[in-house]
Design a protein around this nucleic acid. Sequence first.
DNA 1: ACTGACACGTGAAGC
DNA 2: TGCTTCACGTGTCAG
Lengths: 212, 212
Amino acid sequence: MDSIQYIEGEVATYELSSLIFSSWAIDEISGYESSSLDGAASSVTYKNVVSERNRRKKLNDRLFALRAVVPNISRMDKASIIKDAIDYIQELHEQEKIIQAEIRELESGNLKKGPGYEFEEDLPVFLGSKKKKIDQFYYSCGSRAYPIEDLELSVAYMGDKILRVSLTCSKRTDTMVKLCEAFESLQLNIISADITTVSGRLLMTVFIKTKY
Amino acid sequence: MDSIQYIEGEVATYELSSLIFSSWAIDEISGYESSSLDGAASSVTYKNVVSERNRRKKLNDRLFALRAVVPNISRMDKASIIKDAIDYIQELHEQEKIIQAEIRELESGNLKKGPGYEFEEDLPVFLGSKKKKIDQFYYSCGSRAYPIEDLELSVAYMGDKILRVSLTCSKRTDTMVKLCEAFESLQLNIISADITTVSGRLLMTVFIKTKY
DNA sequence: ACTGACACGTGAAGC
DNA sequence: TGCTTCACGTGTCAG
């Protein structure tokens, strides 16, 4: 599937295939009705051959162009190229959906009030300083949904529109990224955050100022 | 290029091709050296035939799937399908660029700042408790690179393999996510992190344990 | 009748 | 070694 190699193969087999073809054509014509000249008959079939050759070349060029516009290519396979393109398009679709929702929320937030507050609509269950055990905390990054495992979360109202959110979860790669994205997706007004890691767990305390 | 028609053709030509193949094989074997049994020789070639058949089928299925995720299909051509997919991906790329600019413009209502400064990826340059003004702090999420603007960073060695990294930057959406990704990409051992926001800026202090 | 578009079987080449 | 992928030439079918 190397392009240079392919081009070379194309050029190299050009003479060979035409040779093979012409010999085949002569043999076949000799065993077939000779309604026309051999040159004419070979010419009409040769046109078919070169046409098919151009068609294959065009299709391969398109495939290479497709590979060029897709960033993540797993393998150089033809089928894999198409599969990666499909996955990439679906990924872009979901990204676009998410980003449009984000824009909508951002615009509505700016039109209504300051930067994002819809807190009670999103998380009414947080209020009341109840401790809650959550199995999986989904958020969306790009097009995938990763869970945050072993999440324990408690919310306490400190007075003066200040909420304190404390949580612990297992520390893994990207766990912090996920938490930050989750918090930012809720459009909260974070006053301060404190993160500590101990014995493979991640402890986090966030102070949030609510609008109400 | 209809799938059902194609499947039917596949099934229909299955018997036919095997018939043709077996007859061809017998003819060829008869004109070829019979070093082994006819069944063995035909089996090894038949495996190649059925494998190629499966490969073609898989490639076509992928192509149909690609056609399914691309909304605007001009023609049912194989080459046209790929071309439309390429155009669609490029279109999505431009849309995404536009929409990101829109988001930036929307977010710039919070705080407008000029461009910052440059940042070296090398970590050892941080040592020495020098304060550095940083222009753009690139990180990679998926295949893109976003800058973090107005980043001021200072690193101090606290002794006992402990580094204290303090930084301030303009607070925007995903700023925290970017910082977390940047820190995690450096594979540092973060002991604790403290984040505070004040007047549209983000203050962060991280304690890191080094290996050396 | 003639131009594309396609699936097919086949030998070659790379792991 | 066998298994996979590929380009090739060919017959066929629709516009």
